[in-house]
Each structure stands twice: as C-alpha cells, then as structure tokens.
Amino acid sequence: MEEQRMDENRIVATNVTFHYPDEEHNAVDQVSMRVKRGEFLAILGHNGSGKSTLAKLFNALYVPDSGTVVVCGMDTVDDELVFDIRQNAGMVFQNPDNQIVATIVEEDVAFGLENNGVPPAEIRTRIDEALKIVNMSEYAQKAPHMLSGGQKQRVAIAGILAMKPKVIILDEATAMLDPSGREEVMNTVHRLNREEGISIVIITHYMSEAATADYLVVMDHGKIHMTGTPRKVFADVENVRGLGLDVPPMTSLAHELRQAGIDLRPDVLTVEEMVEEVCRLSSKN
C-alpha cells in the first residue's frame, strides 16, 4: 500500500517552509502539495509569490527549513541522494542563454550524462534519442548562439530528457521567448507528458499556458492560495484577479458577458468553448 502510493506521487511536499537569509518573510510558507505520475501541473503566482523558490525546492537546489520534499521517494534533505533527485527531477530555467554550457548543441545535451558518469557509447544513443524527441536532430552540430530562443529551450529540454527524468520542472521557461518560441516549447512539453508519460510542472504567469494544465496551484505570499482544475480556478474570476493575476481572455469575456446579463457558463477557457456556448444560447433563443 505504502509502496503503491510512492509510485503514484512523483513529488510530495509536506508543510514546506523556506526562508532566504536576508529577507523578512518566508519565501515559501507551510506549503503542502503533490505532483502525481503523468500529471501536468501549473504553478501560478505574481512576482515574489514564492513559485520559483518552490521549483528549486523540488530539485534539491534548495533544502526546506522545515517540512519535507520527497522526490520519487527520495527526501531532498539526504545529501547522498541529491544527484539521483536531480536526475529524476530535471529543471529548465528562464534564460535560454544562461543554461547552455557547451559550445556545440550535442555536447550540451551530453553534459548531464557526462556528470553522471554514463559510458560514452550510451551517451551517444541517449542524446540522439533526446534530440529527436524535441525535433532538434538537425542542429546537433550547431553552436548554441546560432539558435532561436525556442530552439535553445528545446535543447535544454533535450539535455534533461537524456537523463531519463520522471518529472520536468519548467521555471518560467517561456518568459523570455517570442510567441512562436513559446508555442514550440509548450507543444514539446505537452508531447512529452502525453507520449513519454513524464510529469510536468510549469511555473508560469501566462494564463493561456496554465489553462492547458491538468491541475493548477495558485501561490500568493509564499502560501498556496487556490488549487483545482483550470476550469474551477479561473471560474473564480474575482478571486484570481484579486491576486494580481489575469484569467484567460475567453474566461474574462465570459465573465463580462455574464455581468451584462447574458447567461454563459462561467468556466469557459478556450475560443472553441466560447463558440459552443454562444451557439447554445442562440439556438435557445
């Protein structure tokens, strides 16, 4: 029973508190949450809500002051397990330029494997596989600075993918990209979630990205403020806006139409759903 539960949960955070030395308030305050196997989870919050700190706690880059973070059954407090944890919970960062180490794409993808002492022949097959999955095979020999932002982030994802992780955490990985780069990265991440069964945690302040997740965690002042499916969270438009966050455009439109007295569903997320709703209304009248 116990074992089965461990297998179902990729990351379990229990009453996690974390505090930066020179700051007054806790960056993360009594947070408990879990990331299930194969789940696509989004953590939302405005700047300074503690969402990025939480991401770093999931990867053993930070260790909680109190409470526990257990990644794939391993407690991040345990120094011996740090590298196993990092291999299982890979992390993509915000700035595409500042996370690529090597001067050639394929060497960068190999970096994590080299660190873990994987034999050269296996590194070869694993990086070829990883680059293929993110559709970057033809760029294997290119210099990273010749790539677009979206391509760089895909290389970063490949570097993590090659380590065969169970969870990938994207810490605002699309924040510095143009819309097409953002789409490239989100499509890649969704495909990994669907086809490879890798759990995904995205930290974002783009509501359209959050809307595609299975589950949302909304943070405010280091605490979890709301949780639930995107439909449920965004339907509470006033509450979300109260945190300085936006809701997806269609949800916002539905909200305003409702206030104008039109009887739409409050939890409309996408354009397609809006079209459906409007058709339903017009057929009724």
Partner: peptide
C-alpha cells in the same frame, strides 16, 4: 544554478 541542477559535481 543550471549546472548544479544538471548534476554537475
């Protein structure tokens, strides 16, 4: 930070 996250030691 990124190097550490990728198991650099």
């Amino acid at each position: 930070m990124a190097m550490e996250a990728r198991c650099y030691r």
